[in-house]
């Protein structure tokens, strides 16, 4: 477990964690670092193919719809909403971690529940976006959108879009499932018995990482 940081502590002389965190938290950090490389590899592959292509579809033309707005041309609006939902759920997650440190079980339950709701809302948005794109003819191996210069686009654009947002969506899904499990444990009183809410912190790290990846996906697919 972590101890108070004193000046000139000999971190590597044994007897305590040289990283001043528990084993589980350190391993969560290393897992997230490896996951960062997985997402990094996917996004860099996307970047490489995009740099190699003479022309590429315009995201503002591809992503211009909003649920219930029919054919109104609204680029960026829906994805901004999705981004807002995910940032917001990250905030409720930190608040849950904070409440856990204060040993305030009621507050942990409240903020975890909001986080799960936010994650579910994000997934619902993504499901709508995928359905909408699928209906307009886009899927793996199918790309109905033209390049910016008016030429026929390859399927690289849709392949990368569905693979990367799909992989991210899978992370969000497992994050929601993990959050539900942890919330069930909080309700059962597991962490009250254990004397600390560190599991909330660990699952919180994972949840923030999912938000972090979305920041990059948002930039790479919708802004650039």
């Amino acid at each position: 477990m972590d101890t108070a940081v004193t000046a000139k502590k000999k971190w590597w002389s044994g007897g305590h964690s040289p990283f001043n965190v528990s084993y589980g938290k350190l391993m969560m950090w290393y897992f997230l670092m490896s996951d960062a490389f997985t997402f990094g590899a996917l996004l860099i592959a996307y970047g490489t193919i995009r740099f190699m292509s003479p022309s590429w579809p315009d995201p503002n033309v591809v992503f211009h719809s909003f649920p219930g707005m029919g054919h109104a041309d609204l680029p960026l609006v829906f994805v901004s909403l999705m981004t807002f939902i995910l940032i917001m759920s990250s905030v409720t997650m930190v608040l849950a971690v904070h409440a856990g440190k204060m040993r305030d079980r009621q507050a942990v339950v409240k903020w975890m529940a909001w986080t799960i709701l936010g994650g579910a809302a994000f997934l619902a948005c993504q499901a709508w976006e995928w359905t909408h794109l699928h209906e307009s003819g886009a899927w793996w191996g199918r790309n109905p959108f033209l390049n910016v210069d008016g030429t026929q686009a390859s399927t690289n654009f849709t392949n990368f879009f569905f693979t990367i947002t799909g992989f991210h969506g899978l992370h969000v899904t497992s994050g929601v499932v993990l959050n539900i499990i942890i919330l069930a444990n909080v309700l059962k009183g597991t962490y009250e018995e254990r004397g600390h809410y560190e599991m909330v912190e660990k699952v919180g790290l994972y949840w923030h990482f999912v938000d972090l990846v979305w920041v990059f996906v948002f930039t790479c697919f919708y802004l650039l």
């Binding site: 970047g47 490489t48 190699m52």
Partner: peptide
């Protein structure tokens, strides 16, 4: 490395 590679490919 990879973006430079993509660019040179183009």
């Amino acid at each position: 490395a990879f973006l430079a590679d993509g660019d040179s490919w183009k």
